[in-house]
Amino acid sequence: MTEKTQSTHQDAEVHVVKPPVYLAIFFALLVLTALTTGISFIDLGVFNAVIALAIACLKASLVVLFFMHIHYSSRLLKLTVAAGLFTFMLLISLTMTDYISRAWGMF
């Protein structure tokens, strides 16, 4: 799916992702958008939110991995993305320890 080009300068080896990959991801994203909109019209209780978020995460991963080339990138960049997610989750989850238990069951 990818080709490696050795650009004219030393060390500057980069992966160039080819258009078919981009096109495939583009269509996948469109389908997922349609899907998430469609599902929101069906009553699934709490699962509406869960599924909507799951689809959003899937879409975001596709963008990060392919449009943003993380799939082909060094471990450092992969770790960088992970660090961002981790800290964001810290913010949310540790804040939630307060909100959830301020009055048990009322959240």
Partner: peptide
């Protein structure tokens, strides 16, 4: 350092369970 911030809020009405963790 990112795991402890609530110690500035102990008397502000945060949940006591959460305060214990922090």
């Amino acid at each position: 350092g990112f795991l402890v911030w609530e110690h500035h809020m102990f008397i502000m009405g945060v949940s006591q369970y959460s305060a214990l963790v922090f």
